[in-house]
């Protein structure tokens, strides 16, 4: 008799399956992957000024778009799709099999990461080609970039799964989830210069991960001299890491505690 396949192994298989399913929904693929580029085109055309010496708005904005991408493809996408899978009965079917719930979570993380990698490549390539984006040159910045993407994907995925328990039905999920994300984007300095926002907005944003992801991405894409223009006069890299980690733990805790296989 064979033994049961490992949780990780099944998680990777689920990831492959999720990617395949995602890629077959063409409209959704085009929208999800190209939307950040479209936004950048709009904002890049509207705001032509430089924010600081050598820092164009596009350069500032790309940090926010990548951070938003993490929230959109993880948190927003999952908090909408999982209630739909619940309504369709797909989750109940999975529950009746020996596949552990952790494999399902791993599969979702893989999907989010894959979608992130494609988005980032499109956004950076588009930025360099059309909007004069400067790519980071030091190894240190690429290392920061890498852990921000990985930790951002993990916490965004975990929070998306956790939040998927909130919408009562798949049909209503989008209405519950999207406003949360849009408000966070405005508060976190994705669409506007963060330091120009009212300080109460900055303080609210500082509770949530998007502000830290955006600031972290600025530390990658903006010159280090710009750190002095941040609210804390520093990139706060260590604090960013800790806050994202805390949100990951919170997300995992609630994912495990509140995950619903079926509509109540």
């Amino acid at each position: 008799m064979n033994s049961l396949p490992s949780t990780l192994n099944l998680g990777i298989r689920r990831g492959n399956l999720e990617i395949r399913q995602f890629m077959r929904q063409r409209e959704s693929v085009v929208f999800t992957l190209l939307f950040p580029l479209i936004l950048m085109a709009i904002f890049g055309s509207v705001f032509k000024d430089t924010i600081a010496p050598g820092v164009t708005f596009s350069q500032y904005f790309v940090a926010g778009m990548i951070a938003s991408g993490l929230v959109n493809s993880g948190f927003q996408q999952l908090a909408i799709v999982i209630p739909m899978e619940r309504d369709f009965g797909s989750l109940k079917r999975l529950r009746g099999t020996p596949m552990p719930v952790a494999s399902y979570f791993i599969g979702k993380s893989i999907l989010v990461l894959a979608s992130m990698i494609i988005q980032v490549i499109l956004l950076l390539a588009g930025g360099v080609l059309f909007f004069g984006l400067n790519m980071p040159t030091s190894a240190g910045k690429w290392i920061t970039f890498t852990w921000l993407i990985l930790l951002g994907t993990a916490s965004s995925t975990a929070l998306g799964i956790a939040f998927s328990a909130v919408p009562k039905s798949g049909r209503g999920a989008s209405a519950v989830v999207s406003p949360v994300v849009i408000v966070l984007q405005f508060f976190s300095g994705v669409f506007f210069i963060f330091t120009q926002l009212p300080s109460w907005m900055q303080q609210v944003a500082a509770i949530f991960p998007l502000k830290w992801l955006t600031q972290g991405m600025r530390s990658v894409f903006l010159p280090d001299t710009f750190a002095a223009s941040e609210v804390a006069k520093s990139w706060e890299t260590g604090r960013t890491f800790i806050i994202l980690l805390v949100w990951l733990v919170v997300g995992l805790y609630f994912s495990i505690r509140t995950f619903k296989w079926e509509r109540a």
């Binding site: 899978e85 009965g89 797909s90 109940k92 009746g96 099999t97 020996p98």
Partner: peptide, 20 residues
């Protein structure tokens, strides 16, 4: 998991998008 490995469940049909 060991228990579910030994049983099969045919629920009322799912209605997912069916992209596989």
């Amino acid at each position: 998991r060991t228990f579910r490995d030994r049983i099969g469940i045919v629920l009322q049909s799912t209605s997912d998008a069916g992209d596989l």
